[in-house]
Simulated assay, not measured.
Amino acid sequence: MEEEPKLHRRISVHQALGGGLAADVLLWRKWYGGVVVLVSETILWLVFERAGYNLISFVANVLLLLVVFLFFWAKAASLLNRSLPPLPDLIISEESICNAADILQIWINRAMYIAHDIAIERNLVLSIQVAAVFLVISVIGSLFNFLTLIYLGVLLSLSVPLLYDKYQDRIDNKMYTMHQIIQTQYRKFENNVLRNIPIPSNKAKKME
């Protein structure tokens, strides 16, 4: 009996997440970082969602307290010949701006490419995919508010990478099987439905 071919090559989840401090926190290799993130996000969610505290008022009060604290610290330091508050250089480097602009350009170009395929090329499959994504986002948005979605995202970020790193082989095998089933059903849908939908070409439209 022939041995089943290997479906995938095991990847390093830590390297896929960047291999830095964020990856250590998400995979709980620095457990105290994960605890700090989880506890702080839980407290913020309880303050804003359960206690009904307003986000803008909270940010304004925190900044007000910070400014007052720094002012009195600086005054006391000048009177007592102590060191000033150890503030970092609050300057955004040109390199950071360029990197952010490059990332933004990639996403904008990708969105424009999708819009071009839908509006000009009349890509029906892509149109259905985009509509399905927006429908899912709309349904999820109607069930949860923005802060709850952020909190759920933090919970998933602290659990899904860890579970995937631990059970990667099993999950990949299940995902491969699911992918095969979805591909088979999609081919049937494409052959039976999509190919029977008449789509006028650009040339035919210009000839009219």
Results as ranks from 00 to 15, higher is better:
residue 17 L to H: 01
residue 24 D to F: 09
residue 79 L to F: 13
residue 36 V to Y: 13
residue 118 I to Q: 01
residue 19 G to I: 10
residue 31 W to H: 07
residue 81 N to T: 03
residue 131 A to L: 05
residue 90 L to D: 10
residue 24 D to Q: 14
residue 103 I to S: 05
residue 104 L to K: 07
residue 3 E to V: 10
residue 42 T to K: 06
residue 95 E to G: 13
residue 13 V to H: 03
residue 37 V to R: 04
residue 42 T to F: 14
residue 58 F to N: 05
residue 39 V to P: 00
residue 140 I to W: 03
residue 141 G to W: 00
residue 62 V to K: 12
residue 114 I to R: 04
residue 21 L to Q: 12
residue 106 I to H: 05
residue 4 E to G: 02
residue 21 L to W: 12
residue 97 I to T: 13
residue 58 F to Q: 04
residue 26 L to F: 12
residue 128 I to A: 10
residue 115 A to Q: 03
residue 97 I to K: 11
residue 38 L to D: 03
residue 21 L to Y: 14
residue 21 L to V: 14
residue 41 E to V: 00
residue 133 V to A: 02
residue 74 A to L: 07
residue 51 A to K: 07
residue 120 I to C: 00
residue 66 L to G: 02
residue 79 L to R: 12
residue 53 Y to Q: 08
residue 32 Y to F: 11
residue 63 L to S: 13
residue 101 A to L: 14
residue 107 W to E: 03
residue 56 I to F: 11
residue 92 I to T: 11
residue 28 W to M: 04
residue 23 A to V: 02
residue 76 A to V: 03
residue 70 L to C: 01
residue 125 V to C: 10
residue 101 A to R: 06
residue 59 V to Y: 13
residue 38 L to F: 15
residue 72 F to M: 03
residue 43 I to K: 10
residue 139 V to Y: 00
residue 5 P to D: 09
residue 16 A to W: 07
residue 30 K to Y: 14
residue 125 V to W: 15
residue 63 L to E: 09
residue 106 I to Q: 06
residue 57 S to H: 12
residue 100 A to Q: 09
residue 12 S to G: 02
residue 136 V to M: 11
residue 34 G to Q: 08
residue 57 S to L: 05
residue 107 W to P: 00
residue 56 I to Y: 11
residue 57 S to P: 01
residue 34 G to K: 04
residue 80 L to V: 06
residue 120 I to R: 08
residue 110 R to W: 02
residue 137 I to V: 11
residue 109 N to Y: 07
residue 127 S to C: 11
residue 9 R to Q: 14
residue 101 A to H: 04
residue 118 I to F: 00
residue 78 S to D: 12
residue 49 E to M: 14
residue 98 C to L: 12
residue 74 A to D: 04
residue 107 W to L: 11
residue 41 E to D: 13
residue 69 F to I: 11
residue 69 F to D: 08
residue 106 I to G: 00
residue 47 V to Q: 03
residue 26 L to R: 05
residue 141 G to R: 03
residue 95 E to I: 08
residue 74 A to I: 00
residue 130 V to F: 01
residue 126 L to S: 04
residue 10 R to N: 10
residue 134 F to D: 00
residue 102 D to T: 12
residue 95 E to Y: 08
residue 8 H to S: 12
residue 96 S to V: 10
residue 59 V to H: 08
residue 98 C to Y: 13
residue 77 A to M: 04
residue 50 R to V: 15
residue 7 L to N: 10
residue 22 A to T: 15
residue 115 A to D: 03
residue 101 A to G: 07
residue 76 A to H: 03
residue 13 V to S: 03
residue 91 I to M: 13
residue 48 F to I: 14
residue 62 V to R: 14
residue 27 L to T: 04
residue 125 V to E: 15
residue 80 L to R: 06
residue 12 S to V: 04
residue 57 S to Q: 13
residue 137 I to W: 02
residue 18 G to L: 03
residue 17 L to E: 03
residue 100 A to D: 10
residue 122 R to C: 06
residue 46 L to V: 06
residue 35 V to N: 09
residue 60 A to D: 12
residue 20 G to V: 06
residue 68 V to F: 01
residue 88 P to C: 07
residue 50 R to N: 05
residue 135 L to F: 05
residue 25 V to S: 01
residue 124 L to G: 07
residue 83 S to Y: 02
residue 103 I to H: 05
residue 67 V to F: 09
residue 37 V to N: 01
residue 10 R to Y: 13
residue 93 S to W: 13
residue 110 R to P: 00
residue 13 V to T: 09
residue 18 G to H: 04
residue 96 S to F: 08
residue 122 R to I: 02
residue 126 L to N: 06
